[in-house]
Design a protein around this nucleic acid. Structure first.
Length: 255
DNA sequence: ATGGCTTGAGTGTCAAGA
């Protein structure tokens, strides 16, 4: 089973690239973030024509998440239960015997902003919910844009980024808590090239110079991690014309 | 140099992303 995550930074703009990528990789499920469109404008017909079902939770202009899947997604839940939030950042569902959570973690803007406090508050609720979900679903996968680079090796210039948004201590602590629950960062189950990233700033030729961060992750419950046979970042779509600033991350689960 | 790109909104130019 192939599962993947991709922050597309506008599904309207990126739809042709998403359809192209689905055709090339045929994942069983693809989690999308930053749709930036309301549900009435979700390109369902195009996705179905490509052979996929879709569960989605969108809003105008910002945020928005979706799970595209070969088999219909069932038991779909939008948001973090019990956490009031107008921002559409989470959708979860069962696909092919796996419980998938698709998440777009808040960016945080800067460590001294209200948005950073929201990010930490949001993540605390996310984390508490995932701990319960992990107890309920042994085959649980949490895919998405975490907007957190777990370690210095996930940052092109750790000195320059020290203490900044996406790498700050409280953010990393919050992510580490998920690992303490038993989740595995599937990317680090395998030997990986040095300086592997999943996001590069549009500005200053960030991609060409590989000035990136690894902030998109596939976390797996132990039972899935034990059967994970590969995980990688697919940098190819970042070379496209009008690319998303994020690249897809893809993992393969055997059996 | 707190800039640089890209998107959506909306038709000026700004907010937000990371």
């Amino acid at each position: 089973m192939l599962i993947a995550t991709w922050n597309v930074n506008s599904l309207k703009v990126r739809l042709p690239q998403v359809l192209d990528w689905l055709g090339k990789h045929s994942p069983d499920a693809l989690c999308l973030q930053e749709l930036k469109l309301e549900d009435a404008k979700f390109p369902l017909a195009e996705v179905q024509a490509a052979g996929y079902f879709a569960a989605f939770s969108g809003q105008k202009t910002y945020n928005g998440v979706a799970i595209l899947s070969r088999e219909p997604a069932v038991n779909v839940v939008c948001g973090i239960p019990g956490f009031e939030d107008e921002q559409r950042r989470v959708i979860s569902a069962d696909v092919g015997g796996v419980r998938l959570v698709c998440a777009y973690v808040p960016n945080g803007q800067s460590v001294d902003s209200d948005k950073y406090q929201y990010k930490l508050r949001w993540f605390a609720a996310f984390s508490a919910w995932l701990e319960r979900e992990l107890a309920a679903h042994s085959r649980l996968a949490v895919l998405g844009d975490y907007n957190i680079a777990p370690e210095d090796r996930d940052v092109h210039d750790p000195k320059a980024w020290e203490g900044q948004i996406l790498v700050s201590g409280p953010e990393r602590d919050a992510l580490r808590r998920l690992i303490e629950f038993g989740f595995k960062d599937s990317f680090r189950l395998f030997e990986q090239p040095e300086k592997s990233f999943s996001w590069w700033d549009y500005r200053m030729n960030g991609f060409k110079r590989n000035l990136g961060l690894r902030i998109d992750h596939i976390l797996l419950a132990p039972a899935l991690a034990a059967n994970c046979v590969s995980c990688s970042v697919d940098v190819e779509p970042r070379r496209n014309e009008r690319p998303s600033d994020h690249a897809p991350v893809i993992a393969e689960i055997s059996a």
